[in-house]
Design a protein around this nucleic acid. Sequence first.
DNA 1: GTGCGTGTAGTACCGGGGTACGACGCGGGG
DNA 2: CCCCGCGTCGTACCCCGGTACTACACGCAC
Lengths: 221, 221
Amino acid sequence: MTTVLIADDQPMQRFGFRMLLESQDDMTVVGEAANGHEALSLVSRHHPDVALMDIRMPLLDGIEATRRIIRAGARTRVLIVTTFDLDRYAYDGLRAGASGFLIKDALPEELLSGIRAVASGDAVVAPSLTRRLLDAYVQHLPTVPGGPFTLDARIATLTERERQILTVIGQGWTNTEIAERLHLAESTVKTHVTRILAKTGSRDRVQAVILAYDTHLVTPA
Amino acid sequence: MTTVLIADDQPMQRFGFRMLLESQDDMTVVGEAANGHEALSLVSRHHPDVALMDIRMPLLDGIEATRRIIRAGARTRVLIVTTFDLDRYAYDGLRAGASGFLIKDALPEELLSGIRAVASGDAVVAPSLTRRLLDAYVQHLPTVPGGPFTLDARIATLTERERQILTVIGQGWTNTEIAERLHLAESTVKTHVTRILAKTGSRDRVQAVILAYDTHLVTPA
DNA sequence: GTGCGTGTAGTACCGGGGTACGACGCGGGG
DNA sequence: CCCCGCGTCGTACCCCGGTACTACACGCAC
């Protein structure tokens, strides 16, 4: 019997996971956590085989929670599941010691097989992430001038986080919304935005949106 | 027995909904759709009492699907459920004929009671949206008489002048620049902008820029 | 160790964007 | 003829976006 902990700040998401897992006769959900701190205490109390870990959570995010779980030497293996498929997340998550990384729009069967794989000691990465993960890995090798991974010069200097923020700006999100949905302070969002504008030479977020479209960071519907 | 159709492009999300609904002995899921077109055909085939409709779906989004369901005179009532709580979504969705609008991070019980309310002819709106929705409603009273609201149709209601202004907004011009280069008073520009936003259902000029790109009024460099 | 890049957060400030009004001239269709 | 859509302009007002700092924790590199 595989014991599983669910860590996600969205109640409905947890519900969906729980129902899926409980429908399998080789799995049991031993707890639900709405943030990283809860996840830590529940892991130390129940020692689940697998922790389904969302990244975006208040108080303590899934990456940091994963890092602490692994560092504590717990037997629990962490399977990160999130809606965001950004490079940095995958990279940091796996580097923090996670055994796998899946995207929420995976099929239920894929999720189940991923959990079983992780529980048995294997690692899993969502197919859609494998490509980028390799690219990110290559990026850390000595760079070749004019290589195949060069981006548009204007957004090339952006960090992953900044690129992410620029993307959602391109979706029309306000600073307040970005703060809420990414669990940040608005002041932090503003800091990011200011740096993005400086790096890209944009005057305001409108021009940043235009840049996002021109560089295909976001694409027209 | 309340029959329900689930329309969402994320398999896991559909699974969560289905499990939640099937656990209730007064509800049955009669179908699952992964995009707007599937939703339309399944509605015409099964005539469900309620359609749980996600907004962001490929091929045909939830808003347009809702509009066509209602226009076809189907008895099915549409309950829009999405992760995003943007004003214009709620506004467009309800105006398209939806009976309700909930956010995905609602508690399962809230979702269930929402479905029952909609099935019985009532309308529901997520508490966090009610306030803004009322404001938006009052604000739009004197304007557009519920015309079709596809992407292109949104800018179709614009006058030549307004379309011109929207175009240069899409180029990143500020109100001051527009006034100078078009030999207008800034107050005039502001008036135009306000009308453009009202007609297109945009919250601010950023969303207007996005709309300009999506409708190919302006094209990426 | 020291330094740097990154991400986080805060305060204070200002200017532009957007709203809510009201107003006026013009041209075309009832 | 008169009304209405359209384009124009104005004032007053509020809030968000953006700037300019400072600050701290962390991981990594030298």
